[in-house]
Design a protein around this nucleic acid. Structure first.
Length: 528
DNA sequence: TTGTGTTTTATTGCCTCC
DNA sequence: GGAGGCAATAAAACACAA
């Protein structure tokens, strides 16, 4: 007995020493976790296990991460709710939300703060919005059913841009979204959490009891706000790709002063007809920023060969930048993530590699609001076909959800130039044995660990976010300057070999804003 | 370089459900 | 009672300003 306890303490000691210092998740791990989280807020044991295996983490870590992630969501939701509450008071949008449920203090001490929503009500369907105004929350229970997705969208207004960000950033691919939200990688219904399963037999309780009223009022308010046709039973908003009507980019609100987002990005927020894919938030989390890293890389890859640009360094810089930017966007932390459907591991795969153009639509749409507008202006219409192709591709990749980590391998990034011409190749490659994937991931992680060691010495990559947010749309505009960029990259590459860090810094300070943001900006602004 | 604030991770205890 | 989840807490990692 004593011996065993001693042994145990010994083990604990070892274990404690092992875990004495908390270990940050690698970007790849975070990316995968976020992806998965977007798809499943409450992963099943199997999922956790699989995820743990894939990421080289323990199930405990996975569980813990998800737990904290959910808490984080709640915090953000709460903060956003507070912020939005104030905003609504001034904007008058969806006021009923505040009057109705906002003050509904269910009294429950533990969950009172989050009375807006029982995460389990909506989580499994990726509609677990950060800041879900009560009115929007009212949709929570319905959001577990696909046909109601669009309604959720429509209840969100610019006042809840955060919600939109989440919704639309997640829903670049409505088809996909629809598909995967309800299908696990196995093709079965997404495993709701045990409680969630129960919730399927939904019985309104608490604030949900009054959801009907709120919901209606909210919808009405949004309708008013939108001033346009309200799709009640039609397809998902994001499915429609009708070209934006004239004036779609104009703020429809009579009081733009109270709608900062509207000012910044009118179409993104006020035009339900605009593809959700277009409505990408400018605010993103650290993770999102990280996503953009890949996006950025993709963009670079498309325009010029960045393979020589020490991708690891670049990545790390971006990661660092992402972290920095997080602070500035705390209030808008969003998930920026995609609809669950889009967030399969195949997406991760694409994310990480930048290989498949399919995800370009996702991450590229995670552009700044300004960029979003410009992107749409520049060639949103012309990209419809691309989007469609991407969707098809994404759907095909559904069954690959849990098998794409090998593609995180940086090597793949260098192949990204071939992506557009060989989208299917990425799919094929994703069907590699798990062990291979794990090796790839491990290699990647190892590399990242190495990178971390070097992190301190690196400088911030300025405006990487901007670069990362580069969208397909912007890419079109950007390509107009591809020659210029190539010239620059060539120079940079050569210089990088000589003095990587220094060059990268300068490259970040000057050109990132020039070659990415400004390029896209100026290009698109020229269009108008 | 250092101090401070923020974010992320790990741990623990409590609660709810089965 | 076990499992899963939430919340609180501590501490490490990180970012940033002085």
């Amino acid at each position: 007995m004593e011996e065993s306890s001693e042994l145990q303490s010994e083990e604990n000691k070892v274990s404690n020493e092992k875990n004495k210092k908390r270990k940050l998740k690698t970007p790849a791990q975070l990316l995968a976790l976020e992806k998965f989280y977007n798809e499943q807020k409450y992963p099943t044991e199997e999922m956790k296990s699989e995820l743990a295996e894939e990421l080289g983490l323990t199930e405990k870590q996975i569980s813990g991460w998800f737990c904290h992630r959910r808490l984080k969501d709640k915090r953000m939701m709460k903060d956003e709710a507070v912020a939005n509450g104030r905003q609504d008071r001034s904007s008058g949008v969806i006021q009923d939300r505040g009057s109705g449920l906002g003050q509904d203090s269910c009294g429950s001490s533990k969950h009172a703060d989050y009375r807006y929503l029982d995460p389990k009500e909506v989580e499994s369907h990726g509609l677990y919005n950060h800041e879900i105004p009560v009115a929007d929350m009212a949709h929570g229970h319905r959001s577990r059913y696909p046909e109601n997705v669009s309604e959720v969208d429509e209840t969100s207004s610019e006042s809840s841009s955060f919600l939109q960000e989440r919704l639309f950033s997640q829903g670049q691919d409505p088809y996909d979204m629809e598909h995967s939200r309800h299908l696990t990688p196995n093709g079965s219904l997404p495993p709701l959490n045990p409680k969630g399963a129960i919730n399927m037999g939904y019985k309104p309780s608490g604030y949900l009891k009054v959801k009907g009223e709120i919901e209606h009022a909210a919808i009405t308010a949004v309708k008013k706000q939108l001033g346009r046709h309200y799709l009640e039973d039609g397809p998902l908003l994001s499915i429609e790709f009708d070209p934006p009507p004239p004036g779609a980019f104009e703020c429809q609100s009579a009081d733009p002063a109270n709608e900062p987002y509207c000012v910044a990005n009118p179409p993104l927020l006020n035009s339900p007809e605009i593809s959700a894919a277009k409505r990408q938030p400018s605010h993103s989390s650290r993770y999102d920023s990280y996503y953009t890293k890949f996006s950025s890389q993709d963009s670079h890859m498309e325009g010029a060969d960045f393979g020589s640009l020490h991708e690891s360094d670049f990545q790390e810089k971006q990661d660092k930048k992402a972290r920095q930017s997080t602070k500035q966007r705390q209030a808008f932390y969003g998930y920026t993530n995609h609809f669950p459907g889009r967030n399969s591991f195949s997406d991760l795969y694409e994310d990480s590699t930048g290989e498949a153009s399919g995800y370009n639509s996702t991450k590229n749409h995670r552009m700044s609001t300004k960029q979003g507008v410009e992107g749409m202006r520049s060639d949103s219409a012309s990209n419809h076909s691309d989007h469609y192709e991407e969707k098809k591709l994404a759907v095909k990749q559904k069954d690959l959800m849990l098998h794409g980590y090998d593609n995180i391998n940086p090597k793949n990034i260098q192949r990204s130039e071939n992506v557009k011409s060989k989208p299917s190749s990425s799919i094929r490659r994703s069907r590699v044995p798990v062990d291979t994937e794990e090796r790839g991931l491990s290699a990647r992680m190892a590399k990242e660990e190495m990178i971390k060691g070097d992190r301190k010495a690196k400088t911030t990559y300025h405006d990487v976010d901007g670069a990362g947010m580069l969208s397909n749309e912007i890419m079109v505009a950007k390509r107009a300057k591809v020659d210029l960029l190539q010239q620059y990259h060539v120079k940079q590459s050569s210089l990088t070999e000589m003095e990587p860090r220094k060059i990268q810094r300068s490259g970040a300070e000057m050109p990132s804003s020039f070659s990415e943001d400004e390029t896209a900006e100026t290009s698109s602004s020229r269009d108008y």
